[in-house]
Amino acid sequence: MGDSTDTEKTAVKTYVPTYQKEEWQSHADRLDMSQSEFVRTMVQAGRRGFESGSAEPDSPDPDPGGNALETRVLELLSADTYTWDELLEAVADDIESRLDETLEELQSANRIRYSGRHGGYTTVDGGGDGD
């Protein structure tokens, strides 16, 4: 490994689907960044999440390090100006959608079920229902 103050640049090559490259370019444009700068910044941000030890193994979340809220806020603010209440509404809607999707996935995988008797969701093994 080189010294962290080494400023010599080298190329890194990767292959992604065309739609992903277009999304990255669009996002970079909104942030007034070059695509190289955008990818470098996103990789470094992702590494910070993994270095902190907070990453969840095998997480389906595109941001397993836990910075999804930060990313979402930056995406929103890069397109417009929001008040506190508008930002809260935008991210709350996102979490409601994610919770609904996650509950559906867990039910499909037979890991949780809805129990009227117990007043809500419970694990299939009964671990969360007080039995």
Rank of each mutant, 00 (worst) to 15 (best):
T5L: 14
D58C: 04
W84M: 01
V43C: 01
D80R: 14
W84I: 00
T81K: 09
D3K: 08
D85H: 03
W84Y: 01
Q35V: 15
D29T: 15
S59A: 15
I112L: 11
V124M: 06
L77Y: 05
D129V: 06
Y121K: 02
H27N: 09
W24G: 04
Y82P: 01
A28S: 12
G128E: 07
A92I: 03
A11K: 14
L76T: 03
D129I: 04
G127S: 11
A90V: 01
T7Y: 05
P60D: 13
G120H: 05
L76R: 06
V124W: 01
L69V: 09
T18L: 12
S34A: 13
K9E: 09
A90R: 04
E89C: 00
M1Y: 07
V43P: 03
G128M: 05
T83Q: 12
S4N: 13
H27C: 03
Y82F: 02
D131W: 04
D85E: 11
E89H: 03
A68G: 11
E22A: 13
L99W: 09
G130N: 11
D32M: 12
E101F: 10
L77H: 00
A28D: 11
L77Q: 07
R113G: 05
R111C: 05
V12F: 09
A45Q: 04
P62I: 05
L87K: 02
N67L: 10
S54R: 08
K13T: 15
Y82V: 02
S97H: 12
T83D: 10
L74T: 10
L74I: 08
A92M: 08
E101G: 00
R40W: 07
M33V: 08
D129F: 04
G116R: 13
Y82E: 00
D63N: 13
E8S: 08
F50V: 07
S78Q: 14
R47E: 05
M1P: 06
S97G: 06
V43F: 01
G46V: 03
V16P: 04
N110A: 13
K13E: 15
P62N: 09
G128W: 10
P57Q: 08
D100Q: 14
L77R: 04
L77T: 04
R98Q: 15
E96T: 04
E8T: 15
L99C: 04
A11S: 09
R48C: 02
N67G: 09
S36V: 11
Q44N: 13
D58P: 03
D3V: 02
G66E: 10
P64E: 08
G120P: 08
N110S: 14
L77A: 05
G116L: 07
T5Y: 10
L74G: 03
T41A: 11
G130M: 09
